[in-house]
Design a protein around this nucleic acid. Structure first.
Lengths: 215, 215
DNA sequence: AGATAATTTGACCGATTGGTAAACATTACA
DNA sequence: TGTAATGTTTACCAATCGGTCAAATTATCT
């Protein structure tokens, strides 16, 4: 019989697993640069090294590919925020959150750009996830930060905008990589740049959140 | 005679000026959301309220439209950084730079997204401007900041990463507007959100750059 | 090995893409 | 007002788009 398309089968073949992986890898390459509408199945197929109908055998539509990709990436992307620990020491929790986010920007820039592209377009495919799970998670962590501020462990500040600023400053190094590279010139090699950024951001946030600001 | 297409003429007609303005306005709408490859001339034409060939009478190609748009926007976009004054008081200069950038994110979100899209795609159309004029301007202002730090007027810090962090935190409110809105919920109206962000960023940067950090 | 299911491909489809040609309409200016 | 330049539109083009189909190939299991 022809096929219940990959998705329908109960057990996943070894081939299915390999090829779907291969496809999503290529899709990440393409979608993260050109966004949903700017990407073509043909290009993804070429990067994946297989024919277009073969791609469409595993994912029925371009949208299905994009969705599968987003779903997979979304989970790991929020991992650092989930790891944010209410019981820990505020300063070191925030510090290590920043570092983790920066590491992700360094190690998974395509994933960062995939989301950035989606956001720029008004998040047509993930707006529900934003208003649901993401908001819940942020609300929870914001409450933790607020409690820390109330207890005088860090400066009083809007926890939501604090989180936004950590997101934006760290992801900037993935999303605006070209600009960063162009402005800094090619003298700073990859690892040096990363360490410079980490040191600066630590200084910025630790200073900005210290309990007794001088100004 | 048929036409030396608009560009070639010496004096620009009233109609030329109006229509080109109309087109670039529509192009900004479309390009800022979908990026270069994701945008279509047809869609821009529809938004602009004119026929596709009419569009192509004023701009020969899609690329020409995009370039004209980028060129026009690039200048005003760097205005706040240019206004950065070496003679002024460091603290208030930085403070007002942040505020100006935040105001631009609020008042010109499409322009911000246009650039963000271009950066995500590796800046294929503006990489030269980045390495040239932009880098020069940033180099110049970075030197000013470095001098301030050396004179003990602000904390010692990497001036480049300081500038990056101001760019990213402020532009975040334009580029990731959907996310911000989703997370904050619709309770915070536009103006309130802006003021909250301004207050937080001011606290963050003034604290982070104060001369005697406690940590 | 043989049968059956899973995988892959070339050929193809209608719709949309960026862009052109030429006829037509309008404007500006003597 | 006439006419030349400017502006606009209809019809169209080849290329590419997302996606289908049926045939061919390969893997799996008895």
């Amino acid at each position: 019989m022809a096929i219940p398309r990959a998705a329908k089968t109960q057990r996943r073949t070894r081939i299915q697993e390999e090829k779907e992986e291969q496809i999503l890898e290529a899709a990440l390459d393409v979608f993260s640069v050109h966004g949903f509408r700017g990407s073509t199945i043909d290009q993804i197929a070429e990067v994946a090294g297989m024919s277009k109908p073969n791609l469409l055998y595993y994912f029925r539509t371009k949208e299905a590919m994009h969705r599968a990709l987003i779903d997979r990436v979304l989970f790991t992307w929020l991992e650092p925020l989930r790891a944010f620990n209410a019981e820990g020491d505020p300063e070191s929790e925030i510090r290590s959150y920043i570092r983790r986010k920066l590491e992700m920007a360094r190690d998974f820039p395509r994933e960062s750009r995939l989301f950035a592209n989606e956001m720029l377009q008004g998040a047509p495919h993930v707006v529900d996830e934003l208003k649901g799970p993401l908001k819940s998670l942020v609300d929870e962590k914001a409450e933790v930060i607020r409690a820390w501020a109330k207890a005088g462990k860090i400066a009083k500040c809007d926890p939501y905008h604090l989180i936004f600023s950590i997101w934006s400053t760290t992801q900037h190094y993935a999303d605006f990589d070209v600009q960063v590279r162009a402005v800094l010139g090619d003298q700073h090699s990859g690892e040096g740049r990363f360490e410079d950024a980490a040191r600066f951001l630590e200084q910025l946030f630790m200073g900005g959140l210290s309990v007794h600001p001088l100004t």
